[in-house]
Design a protein around this nucleic acid. Structure first.
Ligand SMILES: [Mn+2]
Ligand SMILES: [Mn+2]
Ligand SMILES: [Zn+2]
Ligand SMILES: [Zn+2]
Lengths: 140, 140
DNA sequence: TACATATTTGCAACTTTGTTGCAAAACAAA
DNA sequence: TTTGTTTTGCAACAAAGTTGCAAATATGTA
């Protein structure tokens, strides 16, 4: 794990530092998306708040994670899959927020439905956020 | 206009006050959605920030306006159409954010597409935010 | 390995955004 | 007009995010 995250950082031409390794590990260990506050909690007093802000920002720029808009207006982040690179995200999937456990999932295999816009409007991006109850919570 | 907004307030069983009338007028005069900061700017020093927060909250509860999730994580609000009432919103439309002018539109006549969720997931609500270039900006 | 250079971090100070309690002001009903 | 209820503004606070800068850490080279 430790070696794997270092590789990812190097591939993105980032210096390999404690905070970056640690924060990237959190994402690999988590099933859902993480907010700034989650990382702050997970890391205890290990890093300064500012470092977490800057690390998340850097990861987004490098195409390592993407940010997720949610209905309750809290920014969350999740790992990008394959083909995101610096300045080029290709995260064409919908997001699901569980009303029970609060987890935010990337549903990678559900593609974004096409919407028919009124005349004159042109679209560059479509975000879909579905809320409801997730698999785990429905089973329980 | 002044009389019209007073009517709406009374219908929702709200006291008719200066701030409520004024803020509701802003929404009727605006083509797009408004954020708290927009209202603060539009009203100058006329009202306290706290009053604006409380007024928006009250309007949402009464079904007069609805809040709109946006990709840049700023809450915006727009007027509800017909059949929203206290505690019962029926705003089944998508939202469009223009990358050029920044305006957020409610596209009332575009219905929410159905998405096929993975086994085990059940949905209660779907939010769709399309970004791109709006009619006005495309024409210009 | 040691050094020089470039990058990142932590701290402090600050801004912006949002919340709460409470007394004064405004409103609604009689 | 009077009375009781609701709303407002103020103050104080909490949470969230930003910026500049010096110290610490990482990287590439000798
Ligand atoms: Mn995602
Ligand atoms: Mn709307
Ligand atoms: Zn769940
Ligand atoms: Zn536009």
């Amino acid at each position: 794990m430790e070696a794997a995250v270092s590789e990812i950082l190097k591939r993105s031409q980032l210096s390999v530092t404690d905070s970056r390794k640690r924060i990237l590990e959190f994402f690999h260990q988590s099933s859902g998306a993480l907010a700034h506050a989650d990382i702050e909690r997970l890391s205890g007093e290990q890093f300064d708040r500012v470092t977490i802000y800057r690390t998340l920002q850097t990861f987004v720029e490098k195409g390592i994670i993407h940010s997720i808009p949610t209905a309750d207006n809290s920014i969350r982040y999740a790992l990008c899959k394959d083909d995101c690179a610096e300045g080029h995200h290709h995260d064409n999937h919908i997001h699901f927020v569980c009303d029970k456990c609060g987890t935010t999932f990337c549903l990678d295999h559900v593609s974004i439905p096409a919407v028919q816009l009124p005349m004159g409007f042109t679209s560059s991006q479509t975000d879909v956020i579905v809320s409801g109850v997730c698999k785990q919570c429905n089973a329980a």
